[in-house]
């Protein structure tokens, strides 16, 4: 197992390195990030030259990549084209994103397991069809559509009806927020509800569909019939015998889907104006800021690699029949 994990990690690091080289070449080759600065008559050419020197824009590409790489392995992700420290920017944006992603993933898992189990137990009845149709509806609706619908047709009418702002639709917190943590909590909550709900609805649907079919397959096993035959209560059979086994494939699907959740968070952040990792990356791409794009790539790829590995390990842990050579 240890040998398997270390080999997997080694391959992943090589793949990640290759990915940074490709993305670096792509972004660094695609234009001058300081073009806008140069057209500004109020900024002297000396400032532009200093910025170019700082960002190593005049060096050949392989040298620029090497400079980035040799600093990145020591935790220094360089400076953005506006002169900010990329590593510290990335950390603060990461915390904003994680607030939404962790909460949404946990809620989505519980929702998916519950909906999937409920639909499977009531197979082919009206409630099953209704749940399945709802799952497919949320699967079909793109993230930005769900976000916009919640924003325009839930938040705004509710706020107007109440006469004060219950749901904020822009930003992850009020800009003037200060004070001790506990007094800031209601403000965080009012900003977090709708984006989190968006991400939950986007993520849960495919897991619930998967959970339903996994439950149906497990329900069909002889040991389930056996457990019923020996007189266990239906609830006990369902929880101890069916759900526990049906969860095994679902857990791995959730872990493997982490990249998709991050993609969903990116769109959600843009719709709700959160200053998270995704929003930061998006402006980084439009500004052709290589260091920001590479920082985003490093952070998300590390998470994706770790979660893929976690999926494999969990799979072997939950199902002892599986061994990795």
């Amino acid at each position: 197992m240890l040998a398997y994990v270390s080999r997997r990690l080694l391959v992943s690091v090589v793949v990640l390195l290759l990915a940074t080289i490709l993305v670096f070449l792509l972004v660094a080759n695609s234009g001058d990030p300081l073009a806008l600065l140069k057209t500004n008559p109020h900024i002297s050419p000396l400032v532009v030259a200093a910025r170019e020197h700082l960002l190593h824009l005049n060096d050949p590409l392989y040298q620029r990549y090497w400079i980035w790489f040799s600093h990145a392995i020591r935790g220094d992700l360089g400076t953005s084209i506006t002169g900010q420290n990329v590593a510290s920017e990335a950390t603060s944006h990461l915390f904003v994103t994680m607030r939404m992603v962790i909460l949404a993933t946990v809620i989505a898992i519980f929702l998916a397991v519950f909906v999937g189990m409920y639909a499977a137990v009531h197979q082919d009845r009206f409630s099953d069809h209704a749940a399945t149709l709802a799952n497919f509806l949320f699967l079909a609706a793109p993230t930005f559509v769900i976000g916009l619908l919640l924003k325009e047709f839930v938040a705004i009418p509710v706020n107007q009806h109440l006469g004060h702002t219950l749901f904020y639709t822009n930003g992850e917190q009020s800009p003037t927020l200060s004070g001790p943590f506990l007094s800031r909590l209601p403000d965080y909550a009012a900003h977090t509800v709708l984006p989190t709900l968006t991400l939950v609805l986007v993520s849960y649907s495919s897991w619930a569909i998967y959970q339903r079919s996994s439950m149906l397959e497990t329900l069909d096993n002889d040991y389930v019939r056996m457990a019923r035959a020996k007189g266990l209560s239906p609830r006990r059979v369902l929880i101890r015998h069916v759900l526990r086994n049906a969860l095994i494939p679902v857990v791995t699907v959730v872990a493997l889907d982490f990249a998709a959740v991050l993609g969903g968070a990116l769109v959600t952040e843009i719709v709700f104006g959160w200053q998270g990792l995704g929003q930061w990356f998006f402006t980084g791409v439009t500004d052709l800021d290589v260091n920001i794009v590479l920082a985003f790539l490093l952070i998300t790829a590390t998470f994706v690699i770790l979660f893929n590995l976690l999926a494999d390990i969990l799979y072997a842990f939950l199902d002892p029949r599986i061994r990795y050579a």
């Binding site: 990249a259 998709a260 993609g263």
Partner: peptide
């Protein structure tokens, strides 16, 4: 399969944003 890993290592939407912009 390593080529597949290379594509799956970042959210597909993020790569598309870079490619679409450029």
């Amino acid at each position: 399969m390593r080529l597949v890993d290379l594509i799956l290592v970042v959210p597909i939407l993020a790569v598309l944003i870079v490619l679409a912009h450029i």
